[in-house]
Simulated scan of single mutants.
Amino acid sequence: MALLSTLALAASLAQPCGEFSQQKTLQGLSKPLESRGHYSAGPGGLDWVTDSPFPSTLSVRKDGLYQALPGQGESRLASMDNPLVASLGRLLAAVVSGDTSSLAQDFELSQDGEKLTLKPKDPTLAKAVTEMQVQGRPAREVRLIEPGGETLISLSPGQCR
């Protein structure tokens, strides 16, 4: 679930730009799905740019979610009129700003050394992701535990492109 991966990444950012590698393990597949790319975050939102295996850009902004594919224009996937997207937009604002009090409204937070664990309070969100784990300060790794598998995102702060 690219959106949740993007939000997990935003939740962990200490640097506004960097690179990521992602492995998604799914039940029934012998090898994880792998992707690599870069990200940039700021007051206007978050851009999650996948370079391989297929180029694409997912942008999370205050007014909605957008996707851009090579040779095509940007298309809106969802708007903030959708209650789930609106709550994700609010969540994004909280994670990008590091507002743990706002995060605590939507997640149960627990800290163990350098590991921050977030468990969704909303049953709808909990159906998609049961737990997020952020390792390190700044974050080096984000793990999404999902009902059908898990996603591991490794982060490297870097130059903005």
Rank of each mutant, 00 (worst) to 15 (best):
18 G>A: 08
19 E>F: 09
20 F>R: 04
22 Q>I: 00
23 Q>N: 09
23 Q>M: 06
24 K>M: 00
24 K>D: 05
24 K>R: 15
25 T>F: 12
27 Q>T: 13
29 L>A: 11
29 L>N: 07
30 S>H: 10
30 S>N: 13
31 K>P: 05
31 K>V: 12
32 P>R: 05
32 P>V: 03
33 L>Y: 09
34 E>L: 12
37 G>E: 06
38 H>D: 15
39 Y>W: 11
39 Y>M: 08
40 S>Q: 14
41 A>W: 03
42 G>T: 01
43 P>N: 11
44 G>R: 14
46 L>G: 03
46 L>H: 03
46 L>P: 02
48 W>D: 14
49 V>M: 08
50 T>A: 12
50 T>C: 13
50 T>K: 08
50 T>I: 13
51 D>E: 14
52 S>E: 13
52 S>W: 09
52 S>Q: 12
55 P>R: 11
55 P>S: 11
55 P>N: 08
56 S>F: 07
57 T>W: 01
57 T>C: 08
57 T>Y: 00
58 L>V: 11
59 S>W: 00
59 S>N: 01
59 S>K: 09
60 V>H: 05
60 V>F: 11
60 V>Q: 08
61 R>Y: 04
61 R>M: 00
61 R>G: 00
62 K>F: 10
62 K>V: 11
63 D>Q: 05
63 D>L: 01
65 L>F: 09
65 L>V: 06
66 Y>A: 07
68 A>N: 06
69 L>W: 02
69 L>P: 04
73 G>L: 03
73 G>T: 10
76 R>S: 07
76 R>M: 13
77 L>Y: 03
77 L>A: 02
77 L>N: 03
79 S>E: 09
80 M>I: 14
80 M>S: 15
80 M>G: 12
80 M>D: 14
82 N>G: 07
82 N>M: 07
84 L>I: 15
85 V>R: 07
87 S>K: 12
87 S>P: 06
87 S>D: 14
87 S>I: 11
88 L>H: 13
88 L>E: 15
89 G>F: 05
90 R>Y: 09
91 L>K: 06
91 L>Q: 13
91 L>G: 13
91 L>S: 14
95 V>C: 12
95 V>F: 10
96 V>G: 06
100 T>E: 10
101 S>Q: 11
102 S>R: 13
103 L>R: 06
103 L>P: 04
104 A>N: 10
104 A>W: 04
105 Q>H: 08
106 D>V: 07
106 D>A: 12
106 D>H: 06
106 D>P: 02
107 F>G: 04
107 F>T: 00
109 L>W: 01
112 D>K: 03
113 G>A: 04
113 G>S: 05
113 G>K: 01
113 G>Q: 01
114 E>L: 02
114 E>Y: 01
115 K>G: 02
115 K>W: 02
116 L>G: 00
117 T>A: 09
117 T>C: 05
117 T>P: 05
117 T>D: 04
118 L>W: 00
118 L>G: 01
119 K>R: 13
119 K>A: 09
120 P>V: 07
122 D>G: 02
122 D>M: 04
124 T>E: 14
124 T>K: 12
125 L>N: 07
127 K>G: 10
127 K>E: 15
130 T>V: 13
130 T>D: 14
130 T>R: 15
131 E>R: 15
131 E>Q: 15
131 E>D: 08
132 M>I: 13
132 M>V: 14
133 Q>K: 15
134 V>N: 02
135 Q>K: 12
